[in-house]
């Protein structure tokens, strides 16, 4: 099939960017979206032009590197997948596809479709851990955890840190991201001990970095490739009030 791509090109953080139109002919429906971009880049390099820069790595939906805003949706219009898993089957011959970087103040554009997501790391550094030294852990079965709680903790822990929640949110809020980690640890007895310090530190860092607040629109949940639930945000709120 033949496609028109409108891709955001921006040389570096300081320059202004703009959309550049590319024609892609003979796109196979079996390609993934990133493979389609690979093909475009191959063409550009062969013409000695600057290829489109984008983050990507595992290409199996788990590392969280890839992420672009495609036709009004983070990771494209198909729910519960990352950009690397977005198949070209979902597009039709003649389609125009808009490709934009994540937009948020704490995620400045570095180049083209690459944004700086180190803000996420900073939030995790602020408190996304359980303080236990190597060698100090008790025998694994000495603390029992209810299966239901443990499974819930797992559901919260599958966040891949891609930033789609921030990209989708009209407020560029990171609440879903923060709440996933808070929930994982809040649900496990191992994490309860420093729950108060954790939630205070992570929320404080989140605010400091300039993310917006949550207005419960649910866009994050709708776009999360790992289907992290809004209930996590309610839990984060609860945990935060408990920390007063």
């Amino acid at each position: 099939m033949n496609l028109i791509l409108k891709i955001w090109r921006q040389k570096n953080p300081k320059t202004m960017g703009n959309f550049v139109t590319y024609r892609m002919d003979d796109v196979s429906p079996e390609m993934s979206f990133l493979e389609m971009l690979d093909a475009l880049n191959k063409k550009l390099v062969e013409e000695d032009k600057d290829p489109v820069a984008f983050d990507h790595d595992c290409r199996e939906g788990i590392c969280g590197s890839c992420g672009m805003y495609i036709n009004g949706h983070p990771h494209g219009p198909v729910p519960a997948i990352t950009t690397c898993h977005l198949s070209m089957r979902y597009f039709r011959d003649g389609d125009t596809i808009w490709v934009e970087p994540w937009r948020a103040k704490p995620f400045p554009v570095i180049k083209d479709l690459i944004v700086d997501r180190s803000a996420f790391d900073k939030i995790q550094t602020a408190g996304g851990f359980i303080s236990v030294n190597t060698g100090a852990a008790p025998e694994a079965n000495s603390i029992l955890v209810r299966k239901k709680k443990s499974d819930e903790a797992f559901d919260s822990s599958v966040c891949i840190g891609c930033g789609a929640c921030v990209a989708a949110c009209k407020n560029a809020s990171a609440m879903l991201f923060v709440s996933a980690k808070i929930s994982q640890f809040a649900l496990l007895p191992q994490g309860r001990i420093e729950a108060k310090e954790r939630v205070r530190a992570m929320v404080e860092k989140m605010d400091e970095l300039g993310f917006g607040s949550c207005s419960n629109t649910g866009a994050c949940e709708a776009e999360c490739p790992k289907q992290i639930k809004l209930t996590n945000i309610a839990r984060l709120n609860r945990e935060y009030y408990k920390a007063f």
Binding site: V132, S150, Q190, G191
Partner: peptide, 11 residues
């Protein structure tokens, strides 16, 4: 160690 770090292994 992983259990103490909050890794949610199946139970």
């Amino acid at each position: 160690h992983y259990t103490a770090l909050g890794v949610p292994f199946a139970r």
